[in-house]
Simulated assay, not measured.
Amino acid sequence: MAQYEYVPHRLLRRRVRDIASGTEGVLMAVVNENVSDTGIERWAELAYIRGDSGREFTTAVANIEAATASSNP
């Protein structure tokens, strides 16, 4: 089985906010990824967000929301 697969998401290529960290950026991809480092598979949907610095970070898909004009600096 593959180690990951891309998942469609309504906020792809839109500005989002990671509610866990408060960081904003553009949602680049949502990936269903095997996050296990053991022989037992453990799958999680991760959001890949490109921050204003250009560096991407990940967070759980449940942690993202559309960024609002009032949340932008």
Rank of each mutant, 00 (worst) to 15 (best):
Met1Asp: 13
Met1Lys: 11
Met1Trp: 09
Met1Tyr: 09
Ala2Gln: 14
Ala2Tyr: 12
Gln3Val: 07
Tyr4Phe: 15
Tyr4Trp: 14
Tyr4Asp: 09
Glu5Arg: 13
Tyr6Asp: 13
Tyr6Cys: 11
Val7Trp: 01
Val7Thr: 10
Val7Ser: 03
Pro8Ile: 03
His9Tyr: 06
Leu12Met: 03
Arg13Trp: 08
Arg14Ser: 14
Arg14Met: 14
Arg15Glu: 15
Arg15Pro: 13
Val16Gly: 02
Arg17Met: 14
Ile19Asp: 12
Ile19Glu: 11
Ile19Lys: 12
Thr23Leu: 15
Glu24Pro: 02
Glu24Lys: 10
Glu24Asn: 13
Gly25Val: 07
Gly25Ala: 07
Val26Thr: 15
Met28Gln: 10
Ala29Pro: 00
Ala29Glu: 07
Ala29Phe: 05
Val30His: 00
Val30Thr: 01
Val31Ala: 10
Val31His: 01
Val31Asn: 08
Asn32Met: 07
Glu33Phe: 01
Glu33Asp: 02
Glu33Asn: 00
Asn34Met: 00
Val35Gln: 00
Ser36Met: 05
Ser36Leu: 04
Ser36Thr: 06
Asp37Leu: 14
Thr38Met: 09
Thr38Asn: 09
Gly39Leu: 13
Ile40Asp: 13
Glu41Gln: 08
Glu41Trp: 06
Arg42Glu: 13
Arg42Trp: 06
Trp43Val: 08
Trp43Asp: 03
Trp43Pro: 01
Trp43Asn: 06
Ala44His: 06
Ala44Tyr: 01
Glu45Met: 02
Leu46Thr: 03
Leu46Trp: 04
Ala47Gln: 00
Tyr48Thr: 09
Tyr48Trp: 10
Tyr48Asn: 06
Ile49Arg: 04
Gly51Lys: 11
Asp52Gln: 11
Asp52Pro: 05
Gly54Pro: 09
Gly54Met: 07
Gly54Tyr: 07
Arg55Pro: 09
Arg55His: 14
Glu56Ser: 10
Phe57His: 15
Thr58Gln: 01
Thr59Phe: 01
Thr59His: 00
Ala60Ser: 10
Val61Trp: 00
Ala62Glu: 14
Ala62Lys: 09
Ala62His: 10
Asn63Gly: 05
Asn63Gln: 05
Ile64Lys: 05
Glu65Asn: 04
Glu65Pro: 00
Ala66Asp: 05
Ala67Pro: 04
Ala67Gln: 02
Ala67Lys: 05
Thr68Val: 03
Thr68Asn: 03
Ala69Val: 13
Ser70Leu: 06
Ser71Leu: 02
Ser71Phe: 01
Ser71Met: 07
Asn72Met: 14
Asn72Leu: 14
Pro73Val: 04
